[in-house]
Structure formats: structure tokens, C-alpha cells
Amino acid sequence: MKTKAWLFLILANLFWAGNMVFGKSVTADFPPVWASFLRWVIAASVLLPMAQLIEKPSWIQVWRKNWSLLLFMSLTGIVIYTLLTYTALQHTSSTNGSLINSLTPALVSTLSFLFLKEKIGLRQGAGLALSLIGVLIVLTKGQLLAVFGTRYNAGDAILLAAVFLWAVYSIVSKRAQHLPPITFVAFTAFLGVFLMIPLLFMQPLHPERVTPFGITGILYLGLFPSIGSFLFWNRGIKELGAGKASITMNLMPIFTAGLSVLFGQPLLISQGIGGAIVIAGMLLSANLMSRKQAASKAEDERQHRGDIALKLALQNEKKHS
């Protein structure tokens, strides 16, 4: 079960890496409000019938019992977070954006410790630090001290606020575990679309500026980061907890670098080394059993099965005697 949860989290971050790549290009065609609105219109159009077909929820009952939670999650994770991210991408570089996003695991772990009393074990803390080092190696091209010489701007401050909101979303999402996963994301997406309608008049759309690549980007944003990432992320948090799940967000810069290679950019040695360090940190934080522990557990299971078999054999012998 935990292996599947880690896989879900990896896929969620892969799709989010695409969100960073396509998001910056999409905002050249669409204002941030329209990019956010159209993204979640597409997502809600798919999620609502999917939830009805698979989970068959009682929508009115779900709303009556959870309206405050759903409204809060929609405001933080759908409306404000998305708007801040696309606004920030208009003013900051992808490198700065990735650097600031790398603060998310530490922030989520801290908030989880403060409000959810989730303990940060030695292995998890070491893995978190190791992953962060790997991220910095990728972002600074192996020159770690360059992080102190980076020039920051208003976009960086906006993205920092977005990262904080995402950390809050991840923490509070634990309270939504009782809700069917597709229904939960569908409801928050629908509320987000409704809440963004008044904001559309603040940033008018210019259809003549829209390109086929921009439309393709919007479709990607509406399907993969909005549906796939949110479903996988919420499932991963449910299984592993917010603090441990957030460590996988250090994979985003690695995936972003990989996607950049597909668009013709070369892969640097520092990116390969940093990516390996990030993965090592993730495996350490995953708290996987050592070989000795695994062997001991397997031996206990074999002994347990042997005891059951012996007991059954004695019972059969007694019946036939």
C-alpha cells in the first residue's frame, strides 16, 4: 500500500512539473485569472461526471456536512494558490520558482509537527535535508553558494505566499479523508470555478493573442495537474501523512529539468548528480525496512504459518484417532 502511495506522489509531482513548464507559456496567451479559470473548468467538467459514475455521492449531503471545509480547501488550493502561481510565473524565472518550491517539504513538515503532532524522525529529517541539497545542486548547476547571489523580485514573494498556502492545503486536507477522493476534488474544483467568475472582469481576455500552443497548454493544465496530481496527492497524504508526502515535491525541479531536455535543452552533469541525491533522500525518508528487518519479518511470518499448519495437522490427527 505504501509503495503505491509513493508512486502516486511521484506521478503527482511529474504532472506538476509540466504545470510549471506549460504554465509559464500559457500566461503569455492567457491572463492568470483566465488561465486558472479555464484550467478548472476543464477539470470540473471531467471530475463531476466521473465522481457521479464511480462514487455516486449525495452531493447535497456532502455539501451540508462539509461546506466550510470544502469552501476553505477550494479557496486555498484551487483559487488563490493557482492565481498566485500563474501571476508569479509572469514576473519570476523558472529557476527562482523551483528554488522557492523546494521550501515546501520543510514548511509542510514544520506545520505538520506544530498542528498535527506528526513526529519528524531522524531518517525523515536526514532524507529531507539530503533531498534539499540535491535540489539546490540542480538549481545552482553545482554551485551551491550561488543561492545567496540570486536576485529576487516581486514574483518570488508571490510564489512564496503560494507555497505557504499549499502547505496549509496539505495540512488541512487530512480532515477531508472521510470524503470520496474524486468527489472531494470535483467539489472543490466546481467551487473554485464559481468563485473565480467575478475575477474574470479584472483581467480581460484577448482572443487574438491566443495561440494553438496556448490552447494545448490549457488542456494539459486542466487534465494532468488538475485531475491527476490532485487525486494522487490527496491519496498519498492519506496513506503517508502530509509531512512525509511533501518530501516528494523535491522531485519537481528534477522533472522540470527532464522536461526541459525534451524541449531541446541539454542535461547538465549537476542535474544528474542532484537528481540522484534527491531520490536517495526520498528513499531515506520513506523509512523503508532494512534487509535485516525485512528478513526478520519474513521469518516471523513463515514461523506463524508453520504454527498454523502444525495446529491443523494435530486437529486432523485427533479427528481420525
Rank of each mutant, 00 (worst) to 15 (best):
K174G: 04
F230P: 08
G192A: 04
V163R: 02
I137K: 05
P212N: 10
G127I: 10
I247E: 05
T188L: 00
I237C: 07
V168M: 06
D156P: 04
F224V: 07
L231V: 01
Q203K: 13
A242W: 02
F232Y: 14
F190E: 07
I218D: 12
T140I: 13
K174Q: 12
H206S: 14
L165T: 09
T216N: 10
S226H: 05
T183P: 03
V172A: 01
Q203G: 01
G127W: 15
I227G: 05
T140Q: 15
H178R: 11
G217F: 05
I197A: 02
G155D: 02
Y169H: 08
T140H: 14
F224K: 13
W166C: 00
V185N: 07
F194M: 11
L132E: 09
L160I: 07
V168L: 04
S131F: 08
D156L: 06
A154F: 12
V210P: 11
L159E: 11
W233D: 03
I247L: 14
A176Y: 01
I137G: 00
F224C: 15
P181R: 15
K174M: 09
L165A: 06
L223G: 00
G236S: 07
L195A: 15
G241W: 10
L130W: 09
M202T: 15
V163Q: 06
Q177K: 13
I158T: 10
F194E: 03
T216A: 14
L145I: 12
S131Q: 13
T150A: 10
L136K: 09
R175P: 01
E239Y: 13
G228A: 15
F201G: 07
G241D: 10
Y152C: 00
W233S: 08
L144S: 07
M202E: 09
L145N: 08
I158H: 02
M202K: 09
V168K: 03
I133K: 00
V172F: 04
Q203A: 00
V168W: 02
G134E: 04
I197S: 04
I171S: 07
S131L: 11
E239P: 07
L139G: 08
G217C: 12
L130Q: 09
F187N: 06
F184A: 09
L139D: 09
V135M: 03
F187G: 05
L205N: 03
I182C: 00
E239I: 14
G134P: 03
P204G: 06
P180I: 01
M196C: 11
I182F: 01
T216Q: 13
R235M: 15
S131E: 12
G214T: 02
A146H: 12
L145V: 10
G192Y: 06
L221K: 10
S170R: 08
F232I: 01
K244M: 06
L219K: 09
L165M: 11
R209P: 04
V138T: 11
L221C: 10
R151H: 14
V168P: 01
A161I: 08
L195R: 06
L199P: 02
A186D: 01
V147I: 15
F184I: 00
L130M: 14
G241E: 12
L136Q: 13
L205S: 07
L165I: 13
A146N: 13
F194A: 14
S246E: 00
V147G: 05
D156V: 05
A154Y: 06
P225W: 11
G228Y: 05
R235H: 15
F201T: 03
